[in-house]
């Protein structure tokens, strides 16, 4: 019973928060509601006994990704309201509605394939984190490493794209004026 209450509560809240994200004109509201929605998504994960995934969602998405967005928002001076041209709302709602309808129809239809074999079933007795760790570091090792490299690349790309005065190097340059940087100004 608790499961049902939790499910419906979480779903209503998630849908509501995401609607705010999509419909509001204030970027701050959008960002905040997005972060809130993601927290509840993580709630779903806990409902589905995917503890590790839920925690990862909280740390990565709500923590890191939303922090990134917050920094980006500061950079763009987005406290003003966004003026957006009136789009063709009818078309948008129609398309969105159609997609929703199609997906619902597809998913409501009885799911085929009763004889699906589980490839990596969870191990009895071990918690979710242990099972995930076992599968991740044995069967999914290569994707794991590749993902790591990809994150490294993304980080470097982010630095280069956003950095200033990248041509000059403080350590190898011969200028004496560079030492001025090390001086501290007196604070008053």
């Amino acid at each position: 019973m608790y499961e049902q209450i939790a499910f419906y509560l979480f779903s209503v809240l998630t849908i509501g928060l995401f609607l705010v994200t999509v419909l509001t004109k204030n970027i701050l509201y959008a960002m905040t509601s997005l972060a809130g929605g993601m927290v509840f998504i993580s709630g779903f994960f806990f409902l589905l006994e995917a503890d590790f995934l839920g925690v990862v969602q909280l740390i990565v998405y709500v923590g890191a990704v939303m922090a990134l967005y917050a920094f980006a928002m500061m950079f763009f001076d987005a406290t003003r309201d966004i003026k957006e041209k009136t789009t063709n709302n009818a078309l948008v709602f129609f398309l969105g509605g159609m997609v929703a309808l199609m997906l619902v129809i597809i998913f409501v239809a009885p799911i085929m394939g009763e004889n699906i074999q589980a490839i990596y079933p969870p191990i009895e007795g071990a918690g979710n984190a242990q099972s995930v760790g076992l599968v991740l570091f044995t069967k999914y090792l290569v994707p794991f490493e590749v993902a790591a490299v990809m994150l490294l690349v993304a980080m470097i790309a982010g630095i280069i794209l956003a950095g200033k005065k990248m041509d000059e190097s403080l350590t190898t340059s011969e200028d004496d004026d560079d030492d001025d940087i090390l001086e501290q100004e007196d604070t008053k």
Partner: peptide
């Protein structure tokens, strides 16, 4: 870009329709 995304959504709807139809 928004326009292109519109077209992509249209294509998505078409493909979903076709899939449902054949199913």
């Amino acid at each position: 870009l928004s326009n292109y995304l519109n077209w992509m959504a249209v294509g998505l709807v078409m493909m979903l329709l076709v899939a449902t139809f054949y199913a």
